[in-house]
């Protein structure tokens, strides 16, 4: 579990590193996505209970025994929601980047600084 948690934080860090260092907007968005994945992993790892299975009621997990067999289902539900939302946001951002590229023919974030101060 700790390993996965650390992985999550590492991904988070990598994501932020990407967001802060890359000039290409798509790469920045990728950084954001990586960071989001990191958070999602962290969430799952927090809900994880050792030696338990996924909270899916199927033949392997009978309903009566589910409480003791599965991991905490709520974080998983949350992650699902978060992923959905994250995907939506990413799609929107990327579509905006396409629009911006069409307007200015540049992907560098440095070229979009007209509004300041």
């Amino acid at each position: 579990m700790n390993l996965i948690l650390i992985l999550g934080f590492m991904l988070l860090a990598i994501g932020f590193w990407g967001m802060l260092t890359q000039k290409n907007m798509i790469k920045i968005v990728i950084g954001l996505t990586i960071a989001e994945v990191g958070v999602q992993i962290i969430m799952i790892s927090i809900g994880y209970i050792k030696e338990r299975t996924a909270p899916i009621l199927d033949s392997a997990v009978p309903l009566a025994d589910a409480v003791n067999k599965v991991v905490d289902p709520i974080p998983q539900a949350l992650v699902l929601t978060a992923i959905v939302i994250g995907v939506a946001v990413n799609a929107l951002i990327l579509s905006f980047i396409i629009r911006l590229y069409k307007e200015k023919k540049s992907l560098s974030i440095d070229d979009y600084k007209e509004m300041k101060w």
């Binding site: 954001l32 958070v39 939302i85 946001v89 905006f96 911006l100 307007e103």
Partner: peptide, 17 residues
């Protein structure tokens, strides 16, 4: 507006993380 929205999204994304 696209640029502003883009910046807003980045900030919002970080905030939501």
């Amino acid at each position: 507006s696209l640029i502003a929205s883009f910046k807003y999204m980045l900030a919002g994304g970080v905030a939501s993380i």
